[in-house]
Design a protein around this nucleic acid. Structure first.
Lengths: 310, 310
DNA sequence: ACACTTTATGTAAACGTTTACAATACAATT
DNA sequence: AATTGTATTGTAAACGTTTACATAAAGTGT
């Protein structure tokens, strides 16, 4: 039988109101000595606050929900660390709902589970939504942010990500600067994220006076396997270099290249986008355009709570 | 203003009790036709269940908390997928609390946050606890399981993991079978997990009539960087092969070996423990003893809910 | 026609907090 | 001495559900 504030009230001969005030630190509404008695009793009884009851009573939503989609790529950690730091600074708690591995049914479920809780807002990490899910989200009338991956249908300020046009441009420019003129772009998905990176790539090519062969653009899903499976097409295409849409894509390409005895970077240069630890694990190591996932995570949380009314 | 069952009751001219019964599917207590009316009204009003209130009223704890420690290794995904599948089968929800990157303060916080919610039990993924945290956990009088990494202080049945002795033995035996007799063991931490794997390694060596030089045992923390930094010691030690305590350790060793122009596997054989995707990203790819993370995750959840009274 | 069972619904208390408002005690001011 | 103000505590309603118990209506068997 768990101890409640009533038990503490009884033990200290105080009212539950006073106990509550002490326990939720409503400073200036109680005497130091009273606080000591209450805290001592709480400690002794092994009291633990019941957030559900508290939220229900106060009708104030403090908790942030994070929906985590298990993409094959691995940058959650940085994003979560950023979210955590920002949450700490703002005295917010966040809880994570797992949406499985790009599984629409699980995502719907995670979304519903989150919305059934008393929640101040939702952060969607690496999440792609279908129309139905988007409708649920918008209907809920709760602030949300797409983090790192987002869709073109999103309005202003509902997503937080790197500047993907710049990223695409930087990656491509790096290869151009190293003397390449036939450059593929591999592993893009059809989200706005993918499209913008592609745009950056196109800008860099155009600015350098280079033309792009349509066979150089290879769609995908950011995964390692996808990188491996795209390699033959890259190899056949008439290119000397490739921008990989993620580290995982890059690693997959490098691995498949090694298998096919194609030398990287001599026969094929690879640059990837993300900058996770994966870049150091391949042989040769991957050159990359780095995303600051920590900042993306922190920014998304801040943006969410500074604009909760939205 | 969110819709509540009261609103639905008003709209349908029914009592909140009946609405509640329909909404929580207490079959056989209402007519089909009533259910239709209720559901229609719920839909129309955009009703969403308030889990907090429901849990509070029913006093039944359904939600499982998962505490996720961000180790440098990357097997969460498999474990989470396993937990998710088991949760689905048992009609349970789970929510994840992030404990940061091996950060004791964050872990304490995550633990407290979890305990403040209405929670049926706790799954601790890759979590190492200090005495204070363990005391909190045990004091809470809630069932829990350590998943994959656990401490020797844990009692029977409070952890779910691979058979780490067997894993250590298998890894070592593989190398022995391939003709090695001087075998190092690198990257072990001081948890029971680490110790048991070491024991398995020792068993295999002893059984093969081989003696172990103390300099062959290298402690660590399962991380990629740790693998890289251990390489010089492995190189200096008089060994032809090494068991890496994790894929990350293995990848680190391989990378450092490549840098040092030591040929793997000709000059140094490496076998790793885990079997994550990382094994395919190195060059050469890593041979490994595979852990079934999915099953570990699923088993841990099942074990938890089948023994909740504990 | 009777008692008895079954089915469907309603009434109201309970869960553990928070908080508006009321009440008290005491000090300071006039 | 009466008044006002301030600091501290208490009273009780409210949050959105669930559920034991009560009730009513309809069906069953004799």
């Amino acid at each position: 039988m768990k101890a409640t504030i009533k038990d503490i009230a009884k033990a200290t001969q105080l009212s539950t109101a006073t106990v509550s005030r002490v326990l939720s630190r409503k400073e200036g509404t109680y005497r130091e000595e009273t606080a000591k008695r209450v805290l001592a009793a709480a400690e002794k009884l092994g009291y633990r606050r019941n957030v559900a009851a508290a939220d229900l009573a106060s009708n104030s939503l403090k908790t942030i929900a994070v929906i985590l989609n298990n993409t094959q790529t691995n940058f959650w950690q940085g994003i979560l660390d950023g979210i955590q730091e920002a949450a700490l600074k703002n005295h917010r708690q966040f809880i994570i709902f797992y949406a499985g591995n790009n599984n629409p049914a699980m995502l719907t479920q995670a979304l519903n589970n989150a919305l059934e809780r008393q929640i101040a807002g939702i952060l969607l990490v690496a999440t792609k939504m279908n129309a139905e899910q988007l409708a649920i989200l918008q209907h809920a009338n709760i602030p949300y942010r797409f983090v790192s991956i987002y869709d073109p249908s999103q309005l202003d300020r509902t997503y937080v990500s790197s500047d993907n046009v710049v990223i695409g441009r930087l990656a491509c420019q790096y290869l151009i600067d190293h003397g390449h003129s036939q450059i593929a772009f591999a592993g893009l998905d059809r989200s706005a994220t993918g499209r913008e990176r592609l745009l950056g790539y196109q800008q860099a090519m155009t600015k350098a006076g280079l033309t792009i062969d349509p066979t150089w653009i290879l769609n995908g899903d950011y995964s390692f396997e996808n990188g491996q499976s795209l390699f033959p097409q890259i190899h056949e295409a008439d290119v000397t270099a490739v921008v990989a849409a993620s580290d995982m894509i890059g690693a997959g390409i490098i691995q498949a290249a090694a298998q096919a005895r194609v030398k990287v970077p001599d026969d094929l240069s690879v640059i990837s986008i993300d900058g996770t630890q994966v870049c150091q694990m391949t042989n040769p190591t991957l050159t990359c355009v780095q995303q600051d996932f920590f900042t993306i995570g922190a920014t998304s949380l801040n943006s969410l709570i500074n604009n909760e009314q939205s």
